[in-house]
Design a protein around this nucleic acid. Structure first.
Lengths: 216, 216
DNA sequence: CCTACCGATCGGTAGG
DNA sequence: CCTACCGATCGGTAGG
Protein backbone atom coordinates (compact mmCIF):
# COMPACT_ATOMS: atom_id res chain seq x y z
CA UNK A 1 0.00 0.00 0.00
CA UNK A 2 2.84 2.34 0.79
CA UNK A 3 4.41 1.56 -2.55
CA UNK A 4 1.36 2.82 -4.42
CA UNK A 5 1.68 6.19 -2.75
CA UNK A 6 3.11 8.05 -5.67
CA UNK A 7 1.56 6.22 -8.59
CA UNK A 8 -1.44 8.49 -8.96
CA UNK A 9 -1.02 12.07 -7.72
CA UNK A 10 -4.76 12.38 -7.01
CA UNK A 11 -4.50 9.50 -4.54
CA UNK A 12 -1.43 10.85 -2.80
CA UNK A 13 -2.03 11.45 0.89
CA UNK A 14 -1.68 15.07 1.95
CA UNK A 15 0.67 16.28 4.65
CA UNK A 16 3.44 14.40 6.33
CA UNK A 17 3.26 10.67 5.55
CA UNK A 18 1.84 8.87 8.57
CA UNK A 19 4.04 6.15 10.00
CA UNK A 20 2.39 3.45 12.05
CA UNK A 21 4.78 4.38 14.80
CA UNK A 22 7.33 7.11 14.13
CA UNK A 23 10.49 5.69 15.62
CA UNK A 24 12.48 7.76 18.11
CA UNK A 25 15.31 7.81 15.59
CA UNK A 26 12.99 9.25 12.96
CA UNK A 27 11.75 11.98 15.29
CA UNK A 28 15.23 12.85 16.46
CA UNK A 29 16.47 13.07 12.87
CA UNK A 30 13.51 15.25 11.93
CA UNK A 31 14.26 17.55 14.85
CA UNK A 32 17.82 17.85 13.61
CA UNK A 33 16.66 18.63 10.09
CA UNK A 34 14.20 21.29 11.24
CA UNK A 35 16.83 22.95 13.43
CA UNK A 36 19.46 22.99 10.69
CA UNK A 37 16.99 24.16 8.07
CA UNK A 38 16.11 27.07 10.36
CA UNK A 39 19.76 28.08 10.42
CA UNK A 40 20.15 27.75 6.66
CA UNK A 41 16.98 29.73 5.93
CA UNK A 42 18.02 32.43 8.33
CA UNK A 43 21.45 32.82 6.79
CA UNK A 44 20.47 32.61 3.13
CA UNK A 45 16.72 33.07 3.10
CA UNK A 46 14.25 30.42 2.02
CA UNK A 47 14.75 30.77 -1.74
CA UNK A 48 18.51 31.01 -1.74
CA UNK A 49 18.97 28.33 0.90
CA UNK A 50 18.97 25.00 -0.90
CA UNK A 51 18.06 21.56 0.36
CA UNK A 52 21.58 20.56 -0.56
CA UNK A 53 22.77 23.12 2.01
CA UNK A 54 20.60 21.52 4.67
CA UNK A 55 21.60 17.98 3.71
CA UNK A 56 25.29 18.82 3.64
CA UNK A 57 25.28 19.87 7.29
CA UNK A 58 23.85 16.46 8.17
CA UNK A 59 26.28 14.57 5.99
CA UNK A 60 23.42 13.49 3.73
CA UNK A 61 22.37 13.99 0.13
CA UNK A 62 19.48 16.17 -0.82
CA UNK A 63 17.40 13.25 -2.12
CA UNK A 64 17.59 11.55 1.27
CA UNK A 65 15.77 14.41 2.94
CA UNK A 66 12.60 13.56 1.06
CA UNK A 67 12.10 10.64 3.43
CA UNK A 68 11.35 13.21 6.14
CA UNK A 69 9.14 15.69 4.28
CA UNK A 70 7.47 15.77 0.92
CA UNK A 71 8.58 19.19 -0.34
CA UNK A 72 10.78 22.12 0.54
CA UNK A 73 7.77 24.22 1.45
CA UNK A 74 6.52 21.43 3.75
CA UNK A 75 9.83 21.70 5.56
CA UNK A 76 9.31 25.43 5.97
CA UNK A 77 5.84 24.74 7.32
CA UNK A 78 7.31 22.36 9.89
CA UNK A 79 9.49 25.19 11.17
CA UNK A 80 6.55 27.55 11.42
CA UNK A 81 4.23 25.00 13.02
CA UNK A 82 6.68 24.18 15.76
CA UNK A 83 7.40 27.84 16.40
CA UNK A 84 3.80 28.97 16.74
CA UNK A 85 2.65 25.90 18.68
CA UNK A 86 5.46 26.42 21.12
CA UNK A 87 4.68 30.12 21.44
CA UNK A 88 0.97 29.53 22.07
CA UNK A 89 1.77 26.96 24.70
CA UNK A 90 4.15 29.28 26.48
CA UNK A 91 1.71 32.16 26.88
CA UNK A 92 -1.25 30.00 27.95
CA UNK A 93 -0.40 30.36 31.62
CA UNK A 94 0.17 34.11 31.30
CA UNK A 95 -3.14 34.75 29.55
CA UNK A 96 -5.09 33.79 32.68
CA UNK A 97 -3.43 36.26 35.06
CA UNK A 98 -6.19 38.41 36.53
CA UNK A 99 -4.39 41.66 37.33
CA UNK A 100 -4.22 43.81 34.16
CA UNK A 101 -0.84 45.25 34.89
CA UNK A 102 0.71 41.94 35.90
CA UNK A 103 -0.62 40.21 32.80
CA UNK A 104 0.60 42.92 30.44
CA UNK A 105 4.00 43.02 32.05
CA UNK A 106 4.32 39.23 31.91
CA UNK A 107 3.39 39.14 28.22
CA UNK A 108 5.76 41.93 27.25
CA UNK A 109 8.58 40.45 29.28
CA UNK A 110 7.99 36.99 27.89
CA UNK A 111 7.89 38.15 24.28
CA UNK A 112 10.99 40.33 24.61
CA UNK A 113 13.03 37.52 26.09
CA UNK A 114 11.78 34.83 23.69
CA UNK A 115 12.55 36.82 20.55
CA UNK A 116 15.89 38.04 21.83
CA UNK A 117 16.85 34.49 22.77
CA UNK A 118 16.04 32.74 19.48
CA UNK A 119 17.15 35.08 16.71
CA UNK A 120 17.40 32.42 14.00
CA UNK A 121 13.94 31.02 14.57
CA UNK A 122 12.26 34.41 14.68
CA UNK A 123 14.12 35.74 11.67
CA UNK A 124 12.67 32.89 9.64
CA UNK A 125 9.28 33.15 11.31
CA UNK A 126 8.93 36.86 10.71
CA UNK A 127 10.50 37.19 7.28
CA UNK A 128 9.89 33.99 5.37
CA UNK A 129 6.13 33.74 5.82
CA UNK A 130 5.39 34.71 2.19
CA UNK A 131 7.26 31.60 1.07
CA UNK A 132 4.69 29.29 2.64
CA UNK A 133 2.13 27.89 0.24
CA UNK A 134 -1.40 29.26 0.57
CA UNK A 135 -2.84 26.43 2.67
CA UNK A 136 0.06 26.38 5.14
CA UNK A 137 0.07 30.16 5.31
CA UNK A 138 -3.56 30.20 6.40
CA UNK A 139 -2.97 27.59 9.08
CA UNK A 140 -0.14 29.63 10.56
CA UNK A 141 -2.10 32.85 10.23
CA UNK A 142 -5.04 31.44 12.18
CA UNK A 143 -2.78 30.41 15.04
CA UNK A 144 -0.95 33.70 14.99
CA UNK A 145 -4.24 35.58 15.19
CA UNK A 146 -4.94 33.69 18.39
CA UNK A 147 -1.53 34.77 19.65
CA UNK A 148 -2.15 38.45 18.87
CA UNK A 149 -5.58 38.10 20.46
CA UNK A 150 -3.95 37.16 23.75
CA UNK A 151 -2.06 40.43 23.61
CA UNK A 152 -5.15 42.35 22.52
CA UNK A 153 -7.16 40.93 25.41
CA UNK A 154 -4.50 42.01 27.84
CA UNK A 155 -4.34 45.42 26.17
CA UNK A 156 -8.08 45.87 26.52
CA UNK A 157 -7.91 45.01 30.20
CA UNK A 158 -5.03 47.44 30.60
CA UNK A 159 -6.85 50.15 28.72
CA UNK A 160 -9.98 49.77 30.83
CA UNK A 161 -7.83 49.95 33.93
CA UNK A 162 -6.28 53.21 32.72
CA UNK A 163 -2.82 51.70 32.25
CA UNK A 164 -2.84 52.03 28.47
CA UNK A 165 -4.20 54.86 26.30
CA UNK A 166 -7.78 54.71 25.07
CA UNK A 167 -7.32 53.00 21.70
CA UNK A 168 -8.23 49.92 19.71
CA UNK A 169 -6.88 46.90 21.65
CA UNK A 170 -5.61 45.14 18.54
CA UNK A 171 -3.61 48.18 17.50
CA UNK A 172 -2.22 48.46 21.01
CA UNK A 173 -1.27 44.78 20.81
CA UNK A 174 0.50 45.24 17.47
CA UNK A 175 2.42 48.21 18.82
CA UNK A 176 3.50 46.31 21.92
CA UNK A 177 4.49 43.36 19.76
CA UNK A 178 6.46 45.73 17.54
CA UNK A 179 8.58 46.95 20.44
CA UNK A 180 9.56 43.42 21.33
CA UNK A 181 9.55 41.61 17.97
CA UNK A 182 11.60 44.21 16.15
CA UNK A 183 14.52 43.16 18.31
CA UNK A 184 15.19 40.31 15.87
CA UNK A 185 16.62 43.02 13.60
CA UNK A 186 19.02 44.65 16.04
CA UNK A 187 19.48 42.54 19.15
CA UNK A 188 23.06 41.33 19.54
CA UNK A 189 23.46 38.56 22.14
CA UNK A 190 27.12 39.46 22.58
CA UNK A 191 26.28 43.03 23.42
CA UNK A 192 22.71 43.16 24.70
CA UNK A 193 21.05 41.40 27.60
CA UNK A 194 17.54 39.95 27.11
CA UNK A 195 16.46 40.70 30.68
CA UNK A 196 17.68 44.28 30.48
CA UNK A 197 15.87 44.68 27.16
CA UNK A 198 12.65 43.37 28.70
CA UNK A 199 13.07 45.77 31.63
CA UNK A 200 13.30 48.76 29.33
CA UNK A 201 10.22 47.73 27.35
CA UNK A 202 8.23 47.41 30.55
CA UNK A 203 9.55 50.70 31.91
CA UNK A 204 8.58 52.47 28.68
CA UNK A 205 5.00 51.24 28.86
CA UNK A 206 4.46 51.48 32.61
CA UNK A 207 5.97 54.91 32.92
CA UNK A 208 3.83 56.03 35.85
CA UNK A 209 6.52 55.26 38.40
CA UNK A 210 8.91 57.39 36.36
CA UNK A 211 6.38 60.20 36.08
CA UNK A 212 5.51 60.06 39.76
CA UNK A 213 9.07 60.75 40.77
CA UNK A 214 9.48 63.48 38.15
CA UNK A 215 6.20 65.32 38.76
CA UNK A 216 5.65 67.14 42.09
CA UNK B 1 34.16 54.87 -25.84
CA UNK B 2 30.78 53.75 -24.67
CA UNK B 3 30.98 50.76 -26.97
CA UNK B 4 34.11 49.49 -25.24
CA UNK B 5 32.31 49.34 -21.92
CA UNK B 6 31.81 45.61 -21.78
CA UNK B 7 34.78 44.33 -23.73
CA UNK B 8 37.07 43.74 -20.79
CA UNK B 9 35.43 43.07 -17.41
CA UNK B 10 38.44 44.43 -15.55
CA UNK B 11 37.99 47.77 -17.27
CA UNK B 12 34.27 47.96 -16.61
CA UNK B 13 33.35 51.02 -14.65
CA UNK B 14 31.74 50.31 -11.28
CA UNK B 15 28.32 51.54 -10.26
CA UNK B 16 25.73 53.04 -12.51
CA UNK B 17 27.25 53.88 -15.91
CA UNK B 18 27.84 57.62 -16.02
CA UNK B 19 26.22 59.39 -18.92
CA UNK B 20 27.64 62.74 -19.92
CA UNK B 21 24.18 64.08 -19.34
CA UNK B 22 21.56 61.61 -18.19
CA UNK B 23 18.59 62.56 -20.31
CA UNK B 24 15.26 63.31 -18.63
CA UNK B 25 13.84 60.28 -20.46
CA UNK B 26 16.55 58.08 -19.00
CA UNK B 27 15.91 59.32 -15.47
CA UNK B 28 12.15 58.98 -15.82
CA UNK B 29 12.50 55.44 -17.12
CA UNK B 30 14.86 54.55 -14.29
CA UNK B 31 12.36 55.93 -11.78
CA UNK B 32 9.71 53.72 -13.33
CA UNK B 33 11.94 50.67 -13.15
CA UNK B 34 12.85 51.27 -9.52
CA UNK B 35 9.21 51.75 -8.55
CA UNK B 36 8.05 48.63 -10.36
CA UNK B 37 10.94 46.55 -9.06
CA UNK B 38 9.95 47.59 -5.53
CA UNK B 39 6.48 46.20 -6.14
CA UNK B 40 7.78 42.98 -7.63
CA UNK B 41 10.28 42.41 -4.83
CA UNK B 42 7.62 43.10 -2.23
CA UNK B 43 5.18 40.63 -3.73
CA UNK B 44 7.59 37.82 -4.54
CA UNK B 45 10.72 38.64 -2.60
CA UNK B 46 14.05 39.47 -4.20
CA UNK B 47 15.07 35.95 -5.15
CA UNK B 48 11.72 34.80 -6.48
CA UNK B 49 11.01 38.09 -8.25
CA UNK B 50 12.67 37.87 -11.65
CA UNK B 51 13.90 40.64 -13.90
CA UNK B 52 11.50 39.26 -16.48
CA UNK B 53 8.69 40.12 -14.04
CA UNK B 54 9.95 43.68 -13.79
CA UNK B 55 10.45 44.03 -17.52
CA UNK B 56 7.02 42.60 -18.33
CA UNK B 57 5.27 45.35 -16.41
CA UNK B 58 7.11 47.90 -18.51
CA UNK B 59 6.40 46.10 -21.78
CA UNK B 60 10.12 45.38 -22.16
CA UNK B 61 12.34 42.35 -22.31
CA UNK B 62 14.67 41.43 -19.51
CA UNK B 63 17.82 42.09 -21.54
CA UNK B 64 16.74 45.67 -22.14
CA UNK B 65 16.83 46.46 -18.44
CA UNK B 66 20.59 46.08 -18.42
CA UNK B 67 20.87 49.45 -20.06
CA UNK B 68 19.70 50.97 -16.77
CA UNK B 69 21.67 48.94 -14.23
CA UNK B 70 24.48 46.42 -14.42
CA UNK B 71 23.08 43.63 -12.27
CA UNK B 72 19.98 42.59 -10.39
CA UNK B 73 21.65 43.35 -7.08
CA UNK B 74 22.57 46.83 -8.33
CA UNK B 75 18.86 47.39 -8.96
CA UNK B 76 18.13 46.35 -5.39
CA UNK B 77 20.77 48.76 -4.18
CA UNK B 78 19.10 51.57 -6.14
CA UNK B 79 15.89 50.90 -4.22
CA UNK B 80 17.69 50.97 -0.89
CA UNK B 81 19.75 54.03 -1.70
CA UNK B 82 16.74 56.08 -2.66
CA UNK B 83 14.81 54.93 0.41
CA UNK B 84 17.50 55.75 2.97
CA UNK B 85 18.57 59.03 1.33
CA UNK B 86 14.96 60.15 1.29
CA UNK B 87 14.48 59.12 4.91
CA UNK B 88 17.62 60.94 6.10
CA UNK B 89 16.56 64.07 4.29
CA UNK B 90 13.10 64.01 5.82
CA UNK B 91 14.26 63.83 9.43
CA UNK B 92 16.99 66.47 9.07
CA UNK B 93 14.64 69.27 10.07
CA UNK B 94 13.25 67.28 13.01
CA UNK B 95 16.66 66.45 14.42
CA UNK B 96 17.34 70.07 15.27
CA UNK B 97 14.24 70.66 17.40
CA UNK B 98 15.45 71.80 20.81
CA UNK B 99 12.67 70.67 23.11
CA UNK B 100 13.23 66.98 24.03
CA UNK B 101 9.59 66.08 24.09
CA UNK B 102 8.74 67.89 20.88
CA UNK B 103 11.64 66.30 19.04
CA UNK B 104 10.81 62.79 20.23
CA UNK B 105 7.17 63.20 19.38
CA UNK B 106 7.98 64.55 15.92
CA UNK B 107 10.33 61.65 15.18
CA UNK B 108 7.88 59.00 16.36
CA UNK B 109 5.01 60.60 14.51
CA UNK B 110 7.07 60.97 11.35
CA UNK B 111 8.29 57.40 11.38
CA UNK B 112 4.86 55.90 12.09
CA UNK B 113 3.26 57.80 9.24
CA UNK B 114 6.07 57.15 6.75
CA UNK B 115 6.16 53.39 7.27
CA UNK B 116 2.38 53.07 7.32
CA UNK B 117 2.16 55.09 4.11
CA UNK B 118 4.68 53.18 2.00
CA UNK B 119 4.22 49.50 2.79
CA UNK B 120 5.84 48.19 -0.39
CA UNK B 121 9.00 50.21 -0.02
CA UNK B 122 9.47 49.39 3.62
CA UNK B 123 8.72 45.71 3.18
CA UNK B 124 11.60 45.53 0.73
CA UNK B 125 13.79 47.82 2.81
CA UNK B 126 13.32 45.86 6.02
CA UNK B 127 13.25 42.30 4.70
CA UNK B 128 15.46 42.14 1.63
CA UNK B 129 18.61 43.66 3.08
CA UNK B 130 20.48 40.34 3.23
CA UNK B 131 20.18 40.13 -0.57
CA UNK B 132 22.42 43.15 -1.08
CA UNK B 133 26.01 42.36 -1.89
CA UNK B 134 28.55 43.06 0.83
CA UNK B 135 29.73 46.45 -0.45
CA UNK B 136 26.23 47.80 -0.99
CA UNK B 137 25.09 46.38 2.33
CA UNK B 138 27.78 48.32 4.15
CA UNK B 139 26.90 51.57 2.41
CA UNK B 140 23.26 51.22 3.41
CA UNK B 141 24.21 50.15 6.92
CA UNK B 142 26.35 53.23 7.44
CA UNK B 143 23.52 55.53 6.44
CA UNK B 144 21.03 53.61 8.52
CA UNK B 145 23.26 53.93 11.55
CA UNK B 146 23.09 57.69 11.10
CA UNK B 147 19.34 57.38 11.00
CA UNK B 148 19.16 55.36 14.21
CA UNK B 149 21.58 57.81 15.77
CA UNK B 150 19.10 60.63 15.21
CA UNK B 151 16.61 58.63 17.25
CA UNK B 152 19.21 57.75 19.87
CA UNK B 153 20.17 61.41 20.26
CA UNK B 154 16.55 62.33 20.80
CA UNK B 155 16.15 59.42 23.22
CA UNK B 156 19.14 60.59 25.23
CA UNK B 157 17.72 64.09 25.46
CA UNK B 158 14.40 62.63 26.51
CA UNK B 159 15.99 60.38 29.06
CA UNK B 160 17.95 63.23 30.61
CA UNK B 161 14.76 65.25 30.76
CA UNK B 162 13.01 62.42 32.61
CA UNK B 163 10.60 61.68 29.76
CA UNK B 164 12.08 58.26 28.99
CA UNK B 165 13.38 55.60 31.38
CA UNK B 166 17.02 55.58 32.38
CA UNK B 167 18.49 53.25 29.76
CA UNK B 168 20.94 53.03 26.89
CA UNK B 169 19.83 55.59 24.26
CA UNK B 170 20.46 53.24 21.34
CA UNK B 171 18.30 50.55 22.87
CA UNK B 172 15.59 53.10 23.53
CA UNK B 173 15.86 54.17 19.90
CA UNK B 174 15.55 50.61 18.63
CA UNK B 175 12.51 50.01 20.81
CA UNK B 176 10.82 53.20 19.59
CA UNK B 177 11.66 52.26 16.00
CA UNK B 178 10.20 48.83 16.65
CA UNK B 179 6.84 50.26 17.65
CA UNK B 180 6.60 52.20 14.44
CA UNK B 181 8.48 50.03 11.92
CA UNK B 182 6.73 46.81 12.84
CA UNK B 183 3.58 48.31 11.32
CA UNK B 184 4.78 47.18 7.89
CA UNK B 185 3.73 43.70 9.02
CA UNK B 186 0.19 44.47 10.16
CA UNK B 187 -0.91 47.92 9.01
CA UNK B 188 -3.84 47.76 6.61
CA UNK B 189 -4.47 51.05 4.76
CA UNK B 190 -8.09 50.03 4.16
CA UNK B 191 -8.70 49.54 7.86
CA UNK B 192 -6.15 51.59 9.78
CA UNK B 193 -5.40 55.30 9.77
CA UNK B 194 -1.74 56.44 9.80
CA UNK B 195 -2.47 59.53 11.90
CA UNK B 196 -4.44 57.54 14.45
CA UNK B 197 -1.62 55.00 14.60
CA UNK B 198 0.91 57.77 15.21
CA UNK B 199 -1.31 59.22 17.95
CA UNK B 200 -1.39 55.91 19.80
CA UNK B 201 2.38 55.46 19.61
CA UNK B 202 2.89 58.93 21.05
CA UNK B 203 0.26 58.38 23.75
CA UNK B 204 1.94 55.12 24.78
CA UNK B 205 5.30 56.78 25.23
CA UNK B 206 4.18 60.08 26.73
CA UNK B 207 1.82 58.50 29.17
CA UNK B 208 2.18 61.15 31.87
CA UNK B 209 -1.05 62.88 30.88
CA UNK B 210 -2.84 59.56 31.19
CA UNK B 211 -1.24 58.82 34.53
CA UNK B 212 -1.94 62.27 35.86
CA UNK B 213 -5.67 61.89 35.35
CA UNK B 214 -5.68 58.38 36.79
CA UNK B 215 -3.51 58.96 39.84
CA UNK B 216 -4.73 61.21 42.70
C1' DC C 1 15.74 48.16 -27.20
C1' DC C 2 15.55 43.30 -29.38
C1' DT C 3 16.36 37.88 -30.25
C1' DA C 4 18.92 34.10 -29.13
C1' DC C 5 21.40 31.70 -26.08
C1' DC C 6 24.73 30.01 -22.38
C1' DG C 7 25.77 28.28 -17.73
C1' DA C 8 24.47 27.33 -13.40
C1' DT C 9 21.32 26.19 -9.79
C1' DC C 10 17.80 23.68 -7.82
C1' DG C 11 13.46 21.16 -6.55
C1' DG C 12 11.98 16.92 -7.27
C1' DT C 13 11.73 11.87 -9.10
C1' DA C 14 13.25 7.11 -10.49
C1' DG C 15 14.91 3.18 -8.96
C1' DG C 16 17.42 0.80 -6.11
C1' DC D 1 19.84 6.41 2.47
C1' DC D 2 22.25 6.59 -2.31
C1' DT D 3 23.41 7.84 -7.59
C1' DA D 4 21.79 9.65 -11.61
C1' DC D 5 19.01 12.55 -13.87
C1' DC D 6 15.10 15.56 -15.68
C1' DG D 7 12.75 20.01 -16.33
C1' DA D 8 12.35 24.53 -15.42
C1' DT D 9 13.93 29.00 -14.10
C1' DC D 10 16.87 32.74 -14.26
C1' DG D 11 20.85 36.07 -14.29
C1' DG D 12 23.59 37.59 -17.56
C1' DT D 13 25.96 38.16 -22.35
C1' DA D 14 26.57 38.49 -27.48
C1' DG D 15 25.64 40.99 -31.13
C1' DG D 16 22.98 43.74 -33.41
Amino acid sequence: MDKKRNLDPSLRRRGRPRHTEPSPEYRARLDEIVALATEVFRQKGYDAGSLEDVAKELGLRKASLYYYFESKSALLHLIFERAIDDALQRIASIAIIKDPRDRLEALIRHQAIRVASEPSLFTVFFDQRPSLNAADYNKILAKERAYVRAFADAAQLGRDAGILPDADPRTLADILLGMTNWSYKWFDPDRDDPEAFADICVALIFSDSRDRTEID
